[in-house]
Nucleic acid binder design. Structure first.
Lengths: 343, 343
DNA sequence: TGAATTAATTTACGCGCGTAAATTTTAGAT
DNA sequence: ATCTAAAATTTACGCGCGTAAATTAATTCA
């Protein structure tokens, strides 16, 4: 291993006793050479510290093995989890994921796509902002590099979309809440950037109608990504004003619910489904922290893993067959009810 | 803008009426050309969609503008926050950050360094695991690429270290807890991977001695990164067994404290410093969620921003002057006491 | 207006590898 | 030992750019 420095494939070919084109074949696909030669190469690799220059490789290869993975905000544990799943799916398939966070701003999302454009990725897995994303921008990008959307849909953009069936999941938790106590009102942001939020509101309305109850929606002012803060201040205000006409609140997502739980605690309102509880609060997403809220949060678990892996495998299929799907397909996974203590 | 496709710098030179070497100079440093030519180039850039091929650029440049940023676990909001700060510092200085998470496993940390090696970065900002990191590995890497450590120290590895002064911060919160109530016991993991944990234990011991109190340390079994879970189960067990000889618990970090808070809630022990409270719980780090725990968590705020920016600027200085510092310097920032409701 | 300085151009080579075509070698079967 | 298909080699070109040296053009200042 402490032999002379290998500077390029030419030199490595010399010391391994093979020709450079053969080595090039090997590095592109180790199974494309005879087993005996593969073993010779791998033996040499152990003795000499050599690896192909990524930049030279990617300059000459028609398509790189890079896959761009763009999420709206890595500071949100939901996205860091799903991002990790996507990353691992890429690695497992022999691709190199490039994980980028848009840090909560659509401008950064644009920058990230711009950056990816110059990295010539084989494909992109994008969890967009939704309303704030520029559909034309995504569509234009998709003409050059196949894009598969996940988590949040942009109608018509990208080759496919994979996410959670909000109508199923909201109906599930509405049904549970109605069965086990008073029908829920719905708490959300007034101007949500995320399209899932709109679907969830709609799903709530439909579900309540179907169950024969009158829906009530409460919308919090506020911008940005500090959902807990908004849930705490706005939710706390509503609680202290006794604005809800029911003892049950379904929050559009867990982070709002986490904020509202902290407000309820501060205000001395006991939350839960047991004796002496004043309020039931439920969320949606099964945020990594929702197991440790006080009380633990009843919520809907999205199937992170299934969404990430399906989105990735759809992209891989496009890359392998080298043809875009005839029609844009949307895959929706069911959410699962996670019954904890808050509702 | 919708002119013919520009395929390379040669063609862009043709349409912009300049020579390729001049353009090359411009792309390396826009200020290295005359203002009039710079304006001509930027005008052309608006008309024609061209950008240099990153791979060709990086193949030929002696050193790339890439900076590797490696953190132990992006799923931990602490690291995603500090990672974001570091990223932005790099961008502001004209570098391209490559953010990599080790996903909680030292093996992945090694893989990340290995990957970075092939990306030929100008420098690396590394938040290592500590005990589980291979010091020799980091040191070897540092011989090729300047490495600056942050958050967690590895004695002697890297060109410099930037972090929080655990002795100052722990002393600060121990002092506060002693002044405002019973002296704290200390709750931590039995076999912490993070070197800060060891410093904090030591700091707790010294601080208690100095204040004339007898220290008590409680250590939780358990591996991995699910600190909340461990804090909840082990902390809950200790609470229900009335194992602590004081009503005040200082947790080694916020995530353990968050877990313990959930256990206290579950067990019906009221936490806080007010009337009728059975327990005071304090943490360390000012985790993004610690404002929304029940009750909100009294803790030590690390100066994320200062740590990130100092680490980055130390690296930039090395890169600019192109010389390693004569001696390895360690920069420690003070922590700040954040008084909330839990203690 | 001229000389002195600065900036841009021309020319040329190299980086490390992908890849194609023609040729030679090797392996597995008869 | 002979044949054949598969695999490896030789040769050669190109990718898009950095960079250096020599030359020419443009700018600045006296």
């Amino acid at each position: 291993m402490v032999q002379k420095k290998i500077r390029n494939m030419e030199e490595f070919a010399a010391v391994s006793g093979l020709s450079r084109p053969t080595l090039s074949k090997y590095f592109n696909d180790p199974d494309s050479v005879r087993r005996s030669t593969r073993e010779r190469i791998e033996l040499a690799l152990k003795q000499y510290d050599y690896r192909p220059n990524v930049y030279a490789v990617n300059q000459n290869r028609r398509k790189t093995k890079n896959i761009g993975v763009v999420v709206p905000n890595l500071s949100d544990p939901f996205f860091s989890e799903i991002g990790r799943e996507v990353e691992q799916a890429c690695i497992a398939a022999g691709y190199r994921p490039i994980l980028l966070s848009s840090h909560g701003t659509p401008a950064q999302e644009r920058d990230n796509l711009e950056l990816l454009r110059s990295l010539k990725p084989a494909g992109v897995l994008l969890a967009p902002f939704g309303r704030m994303s520029d559909p034309a921008d995504v569509a234009r990008f998709n003409t050059q590099v196949p894009v598969v959307l996940f988590d949040a849909n942009i109608e018509g953009a990208g080759e496919a979309f994979v996410g959670t069936d909000n109508f199923q999941s909201i109906d599930l938790i509405v049904e549970y809440l109605c069965r086990s106590g008073e029908p829920p009102c719905f708490f959300e942001m007034k101007t949500p950037t995320n399209p899932n939020a709109n679907k969830r509101r709609q799903a709530y309305l439909e579900s309540m109608e179907r169950h024969g109850f009158t829906p009530h929606i409460f919308q919090a002012e506020g911008d940005g990504w500090n959902f807990e803060e908004i849930g705490s201040t706005e939710g706390g205000r509503l609680i202290s004003e006794n604005a809800f006409r029911t003892n049950t609140v379904l929050c559009s997502n867990d982070r709002l619910a986490i904020g509202m739980l902290s407000a309820a605690y501060r205000l001395g309102r006991k939350v839960g489904h047991g004796e002496g509880c004043a309020l039931r609060i439920a969320g949606h997403d099964d945020h990594p922290f929702s197991r440790f809220t006080c009380p633990s949060l009843t919520t809907i678990a999205q199937d992170y893993s299934a969404i990430a892996n399906r989105a990735a495998s759809i992209l891989f299929r496009i890359l392998d067959t080298d043809e875009r799907p005839a029609r844009r397909e949307e895959t929706l996974f069911d959410g699962h009810l996670v019954m904890r203590d808050s509702a």
